[in-house]
């Protein structure tokens, strides 16, 4: 089964696991099965209309699935999916342009 790596902030919603083995033939199906097993993860990964949140990245190996086939990206038993947070910030509001 593909492995899914969970980043530190989301482990509290996945029984403290850093890595979970979940069944699935595509990235979307695997993440769907993951959130079925750990329902609390869902709101942190997806928007209300079921899209991956913009600050959440999912990598298959070293490639962002957004640049592969998105949720339809095929995964095999040996693949590793990593949920990676986007980290950004700054000191003040952007200047109006």
């Amino acid at each position: 089964m593909p492995k899914v790596k969970i980043p530190t902030p989301l482990r509290q919603y996945a029984s403290g696991n850093a890595e979970v083995e979940v069944g699935g033939d595509t990235a979307g199906e695997t993440l769907g099965n993951l959130t079925e097993e750990y329902p609390e993860l869902k709101q942190h990964l997806y928007t209300g209309d079921g899209k991956l949140r913009s600050f959440v990245n999912v990598y298959k190996g070293d490639e962002d699935i957004r640049y592969l086939d998105g949720p339809d990206t095929e995964v095999s038993a040996d693949d590793e999916l990593s949920i990676i947070p986007s980290i950004a910030g700054g000191s003040a509001e952007a200047r109006c342009r």
Binding site: K5, P7, Y59, I84, P85, S86, I87, A88, S91, A94
Partner: peptide
């Protein structure tokens, strides 16, 4: 000077 971003691949490597 007022914004920062760390690339996701870099975050993955840190993890």
């Amino acid at each position: 000077s007022r914004r920062f971003l760390i690339e996701p691949l870099q975050i993955k490597k840190f993890e």
